[in-house]
Amino acid sequence: CQLTACGDKDADQRKAFSDFLQNTVMRSGTQLPALSENQKKSFGNYVGDYAILYGFSQQLTRALNDGIRPVTDQLSIIHTPQDYLAQRDA
Rank of each mutant, 00 (worst) to 15 (best):
L60R: 06
A34C: 08
I78C: 14
T24W: 02
H79T: 05
R27Q: 12
G67V: 00
K41A: 14
Y54S: 05
A16Q: 03
Y50V: 06
I77A: 10
D89R: 03
D49T: 14
T4L: 11
L60P: 01
D49H: 15
T4D: 09
D10V: 00
K40L: 13
R14L: 12
A16D: 06
R14E: 14
N45Y: 09
A16Y: 09
P33C: 05
A51K: 11
G48T: 15
S57H: 10
I78V: 15
D10F: 12
T24K: 09
F17S: 01
L3P: 04
K40P: 15
L21N: 03
L53I: 15
Q2C: 10
Y84S: 08
Y84Q: 10
N45V: 08
D83I: 00
Y50H: 08
F43A: 03
D19V: 07
L64Y: 08
D66S: 11
P81F: 08
N23V: 06
D49C: 14
A90N: 00
R14T: 12
I68A: 13
Q74C: 00
Y50C: 00
Q59K: 08
T4F: 12
P70K: 03
A16V: 11
R88E: 01
A90H: 07
Q74H: 00
Y54F: 11
I77P: 14
D12K: 00
Q39C: 14
K15S: 04
D49A: 13
M26L: 11
Y54A: 04
V25R: 08
D83E: 01
Q59R: 09
P81V: 09
G7Y: 00
V25H: 10
L21H: 09
F20D: 04
A11M: 04
A90L: 03
G7Q: 03
R27V: 10
T30L: 09
N23K: 08
S76M: 14
L60C: 05
A51I: 07
T72M: 10
D19C: 02
L3K: 06
L85A: 07
D73E: 15
D19F: 04
Q58A: 04
V25W: 09
D73I: 07
F17M: 01
C6Q: 02
S18F: 08
V47N: 01
L3N: 11
Y84G: 10
N38C: 05
Q31G: 02
A16S: 05
F17V: 04
N45P: 11
K41W: 04
T30A: 07
S28D: 04
Y50P: 02
G29A: 06
Q22G: 12
T80A: 02
K15M: 02
I52R: 05
D12H: 01
Q87N: 02
R62Q: 09
K40Q: 15
I52D: 06
S42I: 12
D10W: 11
D73G: 10
L21D: 01
L32M: 11
Q82S: 08
T4V: 15
T24A: 05
C1S: 12
T61M: 03
D8N: 13
S57N: 15
D8W: 07
A86E: 01
S57M: 01
D19I: 00
Y84P: 07
E37G: 09
V47R: 02
D73T: 10
N38L: 04
F20K: 04
Q2R: 10
A90D: 00
V71Q: 09
G55A: 05
V25L: 15
N45C: 11
R69W: 02
L21F: 13
Q13H: 10
D83L: 00
S76R: 13
P70D: 00
